[in-house]
Amino acid sequence: MASIQLDDVTLTFQVWQNKHITLKEFILKQVLRRQLRKTVSSVTALRNLSFSIEEGERFGIIGSNGSGKSTLLKMLGGIYTPTTGSCYVTGAAYTMLDLGVGIETEANGWENIAYLSYLQGQSPTEVKRKSKAIAEFSELGELLNIPVRYYSSGMMVRLVFSVATEIEPEVLIIDEVFGAGDLGFQDKARKRMLDLIDRAKVLVLASHDLPTVASLCTRVLWIHKGVVQMIGDPVEVTEAYKYFMQHGDAPLPHPQPVERLAA
């Protein structure tokens, strides 16, 4: 049974002004028992999220930039761990988040197809069987023989997308990939996605494309500044979100709790 269960999840990032403290500073602090530079602040990306997704659901996530959509997806994909609360994902999950990261630039397209498949735990025999279909779908042809370092970002997207959609996960987590590649590929990619969505037991999809979300999903969550605003019927939620976006001063269903960030 594939499902997702979130119970009072909060995720807080520690932010260092200069990104890192140095080992020298760290040791000095330990030795001298002095306070570290006061540049550590925290950002709460997700706040008290509780919901569950059952098998058979197609769950949409909408929200403006910086609302916490991607963070939420990364957590569902097991990349981030909640600071407090619990997040359980049952079933083999696959995340399609940042296309184009985790690529060996010196290796050619074929090799990268193999590496990405191996990372999912596939064997060379499986890869050999699948890579022809992957190559065909990507339409990269001869270009698969050159190092990926020479690829344009569009070609990179084609490559990664083709590999990712060849894997059949139980839980599929997708972030904005409908805009993959050029127009011709976008169409193909869309068809492939719909196909995949039919086969996956649980789908979680974050997108800015409201009509797509409304038509594809069975339930939609609107998140704003890490807080759940609305969750329920796709049309209702997308309409409310649209209204809020058009009237910047419209009141939020669940206002952001007033709280100063820790200094």
């Binding site: 994909g77 097991g78 990349i79 999950a93 995340t95 988040l97 940042d98 990261v101 985790g102 690529i103 990372l119």
Partner: peptide
């Protein structure tokens, strides 16, 4: 390995 770590749970 940053690219892999950021996008895959392994």
């Amino acid at each position: 390995a940053e690219g892999y770590i950021r996008s895959h749970n392994a």
